[in-house]
Structure formats: structure tokens, C-alpha cells
Design a protein around this nucleic acid. Structure first.
Lengths: 163, 163
DNA sequence: GGAAAGTACTTTAAACCTAAAATATTTATG
DNA sequence: CATAAATATTTTAGGTTTAAAGTACTTTCC
């Protein structure tokens, strides 16, 4: 069987791998565009960085607090990275470190009341921005896409790089 | 009319804005996961960073070369950022800077023959990785998603921050 | 021609980010 | 108990990233 006729068997003129490559470029550009827009608005309107907002959002959702490893895994950033972000938030009294009695290697990071109050305000604006920036997606489209994205390369990012 | 019955009229129990927020989180996590995976493979198998690969990919596609502003806009990264990436690629003799006669403010960046040859090898592997990481998307799904993502917040990122 | 505005790029400072090595602590195992 | 392995975090070094300021050059407009 010739290459040409084998090609003709499936209906894709463009190879699927090229199509997926295009999709990846678009996905990356979309994420970067939205991230950049959010970053700029957070900075100008609330004088906060995007990574700091991300950490506060994670902590707001987990009122009991989180340790550093949980944070790095959830946010898909490297372990050592979280240290600096928490340092800066702690300097601004937006988060605090609590030592649990059981394990002296780790500690729990929580939002302070000041941090929680400030986050509530920023989060409201943030949700509105996302609503605006993703206005092209209706409820059904959004749900479908969420499902597709969930089963992607389940990120083995974050956490310790050693294994 | 009660709130409950109004709720029942459209089919979304969850407000659309919350749905879009969830979509954004998923989109970001997917992009970060794939990016992290690519970064790691590029580093381990080809000793190159992801941003350097991105720049080389842009240059490989534009054989006539690109100037710094075009690069920063295409890659959606800030203007000053590209300088350092090009510096390192130039140190490794993978790209070269060419001064056009017309405008002495700018210059054209091109792949060197060495850079083009090296990129061809890496790009082949890269396409395979994307094919693997986006295996969940078939041809129709990919095409549909590309269309949806195209009409998003058309990134006004990159380029000069002044206006 | 010459000032003013715009454009292209670099530099700087601060934050971010990763990977790897280091430190401290806890758990598992003989 | 003692040692080894695992876990949680920090530190370090190097690259990335942004925003803003700075330099150099070009265009516009009088």
C-alpha cells in the first residue's frame, strides 16, 4: 500500500499532530493573554501581583490553612518558589505561618483577617474580569471544555523535584 | 416570581461567571502542566530552555528574520524580555543579529545554519510530545477549540508597555 | 532645518520560577 | 536503639519576566 493511499484512508488532510500543535500554540497564547491582562489589572487597581493573588485564592478556599507542598502542588509551581511568595505576603501581614505541634518540619499558612478581607474585595473584581475575558464561552461550551481539559496531561508538576 | 423558580428557567444552577472562573482555572492548569512537561523534556533531552525554543520556533517559521518587537508580540512576552533570550542564543551561535540599512534603531534576528539544524531536530521531538500530551483531542475537537480560542481576549500583550 | 513626538531596543530593579543541593525532621527497618 | 529512607522546607544559582526608565534613531510637522 502506498503512502498516498494510506493517507487517504483517514479523512485528515492536515496531520493530526500538526493540528494539535496549532491547538497548543493557541492554548498557550490564550492563557498568556488572559494572564497578562489579569496581572496588569491586579497591579494597577490593587497593587498586588498575580502569583500573590493565586496564593491568596488558594488560602481563601482552604480556611484551615495549607502547607507549602500543598500550595505548590495546587498552583503547579515549583516548591522553592512558594517560599518567596509567602515571604512577601507575610511581610505585608496578609498571611501568617502557624506551627502545628505534630510535625516540626512543616507549618500551616493561613490568611490573616486583613488578608481575607482584602482578598474578598479583589476576588469580586477578579471574577468580573474573567467573566468579561471569557465572554466568548457560553455555559455549555464552558462545561464541555472543562471536561476536555480535566483529562489532559494530569500535571505532575509542583512539589519536590526529587524522586 | 420566586428566586427558585427564576433559577429554574435557565438551565444553569451555577452562575455563568463561576463557570467561566472554573474554566479559567482549568485552562491555566492545563497550560502550566504542559509547559512544565515541555520545559523539563527540552532541558533534559536537548539542554535548551523553553523560552529559547519558543524564539527559535518563531524564527524558523520566518526565515527572513524578525525584529525584537515582532518577536515579543508574537510570543506575548514583554519587550525587554526578548533581549536576554536573544543574547543567550547569540552567545551559543544559534541566532545572529543583522543590521538593516534602512533603520538603525532595529535589527533583524535570524537563525544561524547551526541554529536551524539544531531546531529541526528539537522541533520533531517537540511535535511528538505535543501529540502525546494533547492525545485527548481529536481532529474535530481540536479544530473547534482552536476556533473558540482565536476569538478570545485578543492579547494586547507584548510590545512596548508605554503608550 | 529643527523641535516634538514616536519607535526600537536596552537596562534596571524587583519579583518570579525552576532545578538542585542543603537542612531539619520524621518514619521505617533491621 | 541506630541507621536509612523519606518528607518538608529553604537556599542557591541561573534564567525568565514585567514595568519603568533610559538611549538612540526616525518621522512628523511647523
Amino acid at each position: 500500500m502506498s503512502v498516498a493511499s494510506r493517507r487517504r484512508e483517514n479523512s485528515t488532510v492536515r496531520p493530526l499532530s500538526k493540528q494539535r500543535l496549532r491547538l497548543w500554540i493557541r492554548l498557550l497564547r490564550a492563557a498568556r493573554g488572559i494572564e497578562g491582562e489579569l496581572r496588569e489589572r491586579l497591579r494597577k487597581q490593587f497593587a498586588i501581583t498575580l502569583p500573590q493573588f493565586d496564593v491568596m485564592a488558594a488560602l481563601a478556599r482552604n480556611e484551615a490553612g495549607m502547607n507549602m507542598t500543598e500550595l505548590s502542588r495546587l498552583l503547579m509551581v515549583s516548591n522553592g518558589n512558594v517560599t518567596g511568595i509567602i515571604d512577601r505576603l507575610a511581610t505585608d501581614k496578609l498571611v501568617l505561618r502557624q506551627a502545628p505541634a505534630s510535625d516540626r518540619r512543616s507549618y500551616i499558612v493561613r490568611l490573616t483577617p486583613k488578608g481575607a478581607a482584602q482578598f474578598a474585595i479583589v476576588a469580586k473584581a477578579h471574577e468580573g474580569w474573567i467573566d468579561e475575558l471569557l465572554a466568548g464561552f457560553g455555559a455549555a461550551e464552558a462545561e464541555e471544555l472543562i471536561q476536555q481539559l480535566s483529562g489532559l496531561a494530569a500535571g505532575h508538576r509542583g512539589g519536590d523535584q526529587r524522586s
